[in-house]
């Protein structure tokens, strides 16, 4: 799997700007206090899904490094920062900006943001049976895939 903020991919992007018109930003909470394990699980899930989506739709998606924030950061502050990222991307020619998040709080911010939010359900993976976990992930990937594709049409 690949991380997309790489020299090769940036080169491709600069050459094919007209086609690669969608930026994907994984929204990644951080915490080192009591909720750390659940927070890490969210992060892992979001990265897993965006990584797989990038693999399947790489000709159109530019997967950015995650937008990270400590869960203690003030809500307005992180919304402001994300709005700033979005503005920067749009100014540079991205037609679509997709956020992928697990954190409920972003729902409330959606109206203040110019991109499209894709919320994933909170799934407590760390005490889930392995086979079941794989099914759930598979399912989530195909749902997110069709959600992305339908945004384009």
């Amino acid at each position: 799997m690949s991380v997309k903020w790489t020299v090769n991919d940036v080169e491709l992007y600069l050459k094919e700007k007209d086609y690669i018109d969608t930026a994907v930003i994984p929204l990644m909470p951080l915490s080192l206090s009591s909720g750390a394990k659940a927070t890490a699980s969210v992060g892992e899930f979001v990265q897993l899904l965006t990584g797989e989506l990038e693999r399947q739709l790489k000709g159109r998606l530019f997967l950015l490094p995650p937008f990270t924030y400590f869960v203690t950061e003030r809500h307005e502050e992180r919304v402001r920062r994300l709005a700033e990222w979005t503005r920067e991307l749009k100014e540079n020619g991205m037609k679509h900006v997709f956020y992928v998040a697990c954190d409920r709080e972003w729902k409330e911010a959606e109206s203040k943001l110019e991109g499209t939010l894709f919320s994933l359900p909170m799934i407590p993976f760390y005490d889930m049976d392995e086979t079941y976990k794989q099914q759930v992930i598979h399912e989530q990937i195909s749902q997110l895939l069709s959600a992305f594709i339908s945004q384009w049409t």
Binding site: M1, E44, Q47, L48, E52, T131, Q134, I137, H138, I141
Partner: peptide, 19 residues
């Protein structure tokens, strides 16, 4: 850091996608 991230996600994915 990158290495950890990649290994983690990659391993998880291989498990998930290739059932």
């Amino acid at each position: 850091f990158l290495n950890y991230t990649l290994t983690g996600v990659g391993g998880f994915m291989a498990a998930g996608m290739l059932m």
